[in-house]
Amino acid sequence: MSTEEQHDRPDQPRTLDAGALKALAHPLRVRIYDLLSERGPQTASTLAALIGETSGATSYHLRALAAHDLIREVEGRGTARERWWERPKGRINLPGPDETMSPANRAAAQIVSAEFFRLRHQTLMDYLNRPESAVPEGWRDAGLVMTTMLDLTPAQMADVRKELSDLVDAVVERYKGQEGAPGTRRVSLRSEIFDLPSQSGSAQSTEEQS
């Protein structure tokens, strides 16, 4: 099993090795890694304010992530006392728990995957429960949450997966480089497809938009 986290259009996706997985296998580090994707470069102090930790704690976790090239220092920004960190652009593959892994590596993969998806779910629920008054003008009807049920063969699902992946890559290529541009906001783009437990039934579709 693998999951993918994308920040910009990838050239060569990076599959995390055992060392990187173990470095990331801490809920606070996954949160820091996620915030660097969501909000762009941060310092230990700004991250501490965002997650309610001390800057000493965030600085320690930043160094642990940097040791495995999961993040890097922003060139030409900051000082020796206040360093800025960023997540390199590109796609990573998160290997899921596998019976060929050692018990320690399998546990690390479980922690990382569980925390990534917990954060994804929390972000979605925050979006769905956000009061209209908190949404800027022009953004209130921009989002879409869609679920569609249909019956596919493995080959068909692979085709759909490729089409969705190609579509996302094309969209990212079209709009890349707009960070900080007037009128833009960071958005979360998701696509999901997976098989359900065996059951009969024809295709059906539900859609929720807010």
Rank of each mutant, 00 (worst) to 15 (best):
S55P: 11
R29T: 09
L35R: 04
D17N: 03
A67I: 01
T43R: 00
T46G: 01
I51K: 04
A44C: 03
W84T: 02
R81P: 12
L70K: 00
E82R: 02
L35Q: 09
D34F: 12
L94D: 04
E53C: 04
R39W: 12
G90P: 07
V74N: 08
I51V: 11
A18D: 14
R29G: 10
A66R: 06
P88W: 00
W84K: 00
S102K: 06
A57E: 15
P41C: 14
Y33K: 04
E38G: 11
T58S: 12
L62W: 05
A64I: 14
D69R: 01
E53F: 03
S102H: 09
G90I: 06
R39I: 13
A20C: 03
V74L: 15
R31C: 13
T43D: 09
R72A: 12
Y33T: 02
L62M: 02
R91N: 14
A25N: 03
R77L: 08
N105Q: 13
R91V: 12
H26R: 08
E82T: 04
A48D: 08
G96S: 10
R83T: 13
A18V: 05
L62G: 04
E73D: 11
G52S: 10
T58Y: 07
Q42N: 05
K22W: 11
E38F: 13
